[in-house]
Amino acid sequence: MSTVAAQIQNRKNADQTPVVEYRSIRKQYGEFVAIGSVTARVNKGEVVCLIGPSGSGKSTLLRTTNALEQIQGGELLFDGKPLPASKAGIRQVRQRMGMVFQNFELFPHKTVLENITVGPRTVLKVSEQEARKRAVALLDKVGLADKADKYPANLSGGQQQRVAIARALAMEPEVMLFDEPTSALDPETIGEVLNVMKRLAEEGMTMIVVTHEMTFARRVADWVVVFDRGNIVEQGPAAQIFDNPQAERTRDFLSHLGWDG
């Protein structure tokens, strides 16, 4: 039995249909190969962390998940079905995935509350009253109930990112995509964002997280995928990747980050 098959056997929720499945995904920008051939899966209720050096293709893979990037080869399955080709089909898929960006990308001309209601109002045609009610509850959940009427510019980075998480959750997604959610933050506000993410994981949200926060990955991830130069060098349970890495490249990467278990 191959190592990969063995790893997948002792995986949490391994019996379930994967929420997201990457099959030999390939992505190129002209001549540059961003992703060579990547195969991985994300099961329901799992937190999967994508780690690796900058430019190794992990963010690109995340962005193919909701079709912000087009793939050139392979197959991407969401909820057992290939990503639709039509624009309307893609929009439907995106409604079911939440995304959090490195630079927050809150809408600066809208208040915190409006940032959270605009998605449900525009896309799901939820009534103003219902959308507000949901937004207030989500703000409470991320600990920012008192900031509803503020503009993003008046919030700290950590607060903005928590609003961005609430904005994504307002669409009641089945999976959350996090693209280096703490990389643009001051060190002292990283913790508040990671705490929100950790709580989300504990509630059973399926999450795909591109991150450089190894402590978070070690503690929260069920499954860790290590990237290097557009390919996966190793994947497995967090305990294996961090305590007993199999690939030379993983050991190098972790030691460069100063990870000593």
Partner: peptide, 20 residues
């Protein structure tokens, strides 16, 4: 990124343009 954030919510390109 602003357009991407709007698209990621499931908006069409036109909605992203007009609202965001």
């Amino acid at each position: 990124g602003q357009t991407e954030a709007a698209l990621a919510l499931g908006m069409s390109h036109m909605e992203a343009m007009l609202k965001i």
